[in-house]
Design a protein around this nucleic acid. Structure first.
Lengths: 116, 116
DNA sequence: CTGTATCCTTGGCGATACTG
DNA sequence: CAGTATCGCCAAGGATACAG
C-alpha cells in the first residue's frame, strides 16, 4: 500500500458549479456572446452579425442556455416586425468582468503568442 | 435596408485567445486539474485520486494541453520508480486566481441553486 | 426578424487493455 | 508509477431548409 499524500485542497465547492460554469462558457461562441453584450443590449441578428461565423442554431442554443443560467436576459419588443433584445443580467455583468481578467491572462498563454 | 446598429464593442483581442482559453478550461476535468494544483504540486496518480472519476487518458490529455499552453509545469523526478510532478506555472497561478472569482459568480447561477 | 427542424460529420470522452 | 493504444458511443456543432 502506497502512502499517498492527501490533498489539503478542499474539494470543489458544492456540486462543482465551477465545472458546469466552465463548460457553459467553454462551449462554442459562448464567450463571444457575453463579450458583445458587455456594453449594450443586442438583438439576435446584430449578435449574429457581430459574431462572424456563428450559425443561427448555435447562437440560439447558446442564448437559451445562458438565459436559463441567469446570465443573459431576453426581452421581446412588440414592434413590427417583432424584435428580441438580449442583455446581461447583473450576474452576467459580474461574469463578464471576471472574464476580462481571464482575457488578460489568456493573452499570455502560448496559444496567444502567434509569433513564436 | 435595415439600419443596423454597429457594435461599439471592440472585437475580441487579437485572434481571440479568450475563446481558445475558455475552450481549454471548459474541457472535461480541466478546472479540476487547476483546482487541485492550486496549493502544492501533485503527481499523476495523486491527481487521478483527487479527481474522482477521471480516466488516465483524459487526465494525461488535459495535463498535456495545459502544459503546452504554459499553465502547468511537468517535473520528472529520477526516483525509483520515477515519479512525475505537476505544478502551476506563474501564469497558471494567475489563471487559478481568476477562476476563483468565476467560482463565486458560478455559485449564483441557476445551475448552482439546487433547491429551486 | 427570430428562430426551429433535420441531417450529417467531427471529435470528445469513457472503458479497457497494454507498455517502459 | 505514468502513461499510450484502441474502440465505440454520443453529443456538439455546421449546413441547409423551413416556419411564425
Amino acid at each position: 500500500m502506497v502512502k499517498r499524500r492527501k490533498s489539503n485542497v478542499p474539494p470543489p465547492p458544492s456540486d462543482c458549479p465551477l465545472s458546469k460554469c466552465m463548460r457553459l462558457l467553454g462551449a462554442a461562441w459562448a464567450a463571444h456572446v457575453i463579450w458583445y453584450l458587455r456594453q449594450d443590449e443586442r438583438c439576435f441578428t446584430e449578435l449574429q452579425h457581430d459574431i462572424a461565423g456563428v450559425s443561427a442554431k448555435v447562437l440560439t442554443n447558446r442564448l437559451r442556455k445562458l438565459e436559463r443560467e441567469g446570465v443573459v436576459e431576453r426581452l421581446t419588443r412588440p414592434t413590427s416586425p417583432p424584435t428580441v433584445c438580449y442583455s446581461l443580467t447583473p450576474v452576467g455583468q459580474e461574469l463578464s468582468a471576471a472574464l476580462t481578467n481571464v482575457v488578460h491572462i489568456a493573452q499570455r498563454l502560448k496559444c496567444a503568442q502567434v509569433a513564436g
